[in-house]
Design a protein around this nucleic acid. Sequence first.
DNA 1: TTGTAGGCGTTATCAC
DNA 2: GTGATAACGCCTACAA
Lengths: 345, 345
Amino acid sequence: MVLSSVTLREVANEAGVHVSTASRALNPETRSIVNEKTARRVAAAAERLGYRPHPLARGLRTNRTLTVGITVPDLLNPVFPLLYAGAETSLRDQGYSLLVGAGDDPANPVAASGILIDRHVDGLIMANAHIHSSLPQMASNQPVPTVLVNRTTDSIDAPSIACDDHAGIGLIVRHLVELGHTDIAHIAGPQDISNGVIRKQAFVAWMHSEGLDTPPELIVETNGFHTAEGRKACKRLLDSGARFTAIVGANDLIALGCYDTLAERKIKVPADISVTGFDDMAFIDRVNPPMTTVLVPFYEMGALAGQVMLSLLTSDDSGAGTLPTSTRLRPVLKTRGSTAPPAGS
Amino acid sequence: MVLSSVTLREVANEAGVHVSTASRALNPETRSIVNEKTARRVAAAAERLGYRPHPLARGLRTNRTLTVGITVPDLLNPVFPLLYAGAETSLRDQGYSLLVGAGDDPANPVAASGILIDRHVDGLIMANAHIHSSLPQMASNQPVPTVLVNRTTDSIDAPSIACDDHAGIGLIVRHLVELGHTDIAHIAGPQDISNGVIRKQAFVAWMHSEGLDTPPELIVETNGFHTAEGRKACKRLLDSGARFTAIVGANDLIALGCYDTLAERKIKVPADISVTGFDDMAFIDRVNPPMTTVLVPFYEMGALAGQVMLSLLTSDDSGAGTLPTSTRLRPVLKTRGSTAPPAGS
DNA sequence: TTGTAGGCGTTATCAC
DNA sequence: GTGATAACGCCTACAA
């Protein structure tokens, strides 16, 4: 239990030593310098008085806040709380707290991170990068140690952790082809977001490698990974008059939007048209019909991002020899009730 | 864009004034004391240099961090990100940032808030209170300004914002009675959480006021508002051999657990048994069957909690005349596909 | 091994 | 109305 605001000076008095000795005794890094016995006396005094170091005073002095910022596009998409939980788990043990910034404005990608930077976070985990996002700069005029997660971009030179979207789309396309589909549509995500681009490119590539065609009218783009965008895009697809028996959604929410539009038009999933998602977000296995999708390990991505951040934060040579690694996690196909052989077969 | 670490002293130099004058000129509270013209000169210099006050230095001096902690039981339940978003919206405009603490350990209710307190949050929004939770204490040995939200407890003397659970259960019970149900079971939440207690009591009260019986075997309790708990409780209910045609779940997740157990036993919802939830969490309208539930305005609750917190934080007389208000927001019945007249009618 | 002194950037209390 | 000075609590050369 946290009790009173005891200062280091009081601990020092209680232990009969001077402040600096108390400081050294309590700091793991410098504990070795101090006499074994006095160190224990100080520790005991600190314990007895319920001493808690003042984070602001310490931070002002050390120029570190033990705080890491994490920016996510949208907290209401359940995958991002999951990502957060992963990162938090990795960082909490080392004494770091997470400060969340939510927002997905492409025009002002730094908006969410700006407030975090102003608060002097020691590092930044970006899950909302746009392709042209630039690395926000820190008060010290040096870039904040940054880790990209979920989305990547070449314009930020930072370690990145993401899902192997190319492979994921491959799982989906092969699954549909095995079911007998040949006319497959794709509702792509925004093309200023890496996931949107990669999944679309992967879709084309895998279709071709299966010997299938990808006519332009069967690929439509959205302005966001949201249900409403999925609804609109699905309408465009249907209104184009093009024939297809399956829709590959760029993520689960877009695919959910397809559910809505198809239901509106009395088109049955999967009897008339198969629909697939991407992410395997919470509860997507319980919608009607349960959605065939690809699991993206968001929790693990977050946990890994946290660990990479830790290694960035504790690397002695700051910036020089740190190698920006790029990790791609393996997706897993989740076959459920939204896919079936095409009507004609 | 945040650029360099310019200090107040540099701004003062640039403007040709002393640091203290610069401080006063930049602080809205004290701007009036300083000469109109020099104030503008300082402001211009600050703007030109891209000055950002150092939050740690300021906080160390003023003993305020412009940070509010929010503790939630479980970020993976989509209602809590919603709550968070509401609070964040209210507080951000006033310059406050939110620090999240997640956890729901009844044995150590302060666990989640402890880390926040240690970081000297200016206030605490508790959404994870247990009935016997005590008010965590601040470093200053004075209680942190606290707002209870979502869950309440008498053992903490703080303003509270919650849903009118009693009324909500009334909506549910009347709905089921109108459908013709008379044998209605309740799967209650944990009885060390206000929502669990109130909803259970309300269930009994409303049943009686409808002239219906509540035999003890038709009321089972869970250890948490989770799907797994709902599954287990539903099994106990069925295995008791008692007859019933409807289950009132203490929240949506518990009701989802019922879906699972009932499906396992080939019992159809709502044909054989009707099931209701509580919260109207995201996507619960898309499960199979779409769940009849009661909407709890979590976003509004969060926003209100943020505003109450602001008034606590800006009240001049600290603690003396502040009246702990208690607000109950109105729930809304959402009739969907998980409820129907009982089989015999 | 321990004590001394200075300063991180800001605000508040003086005096001018 | 403005300037000088101290202090918030902590860490860290440097000196002893």
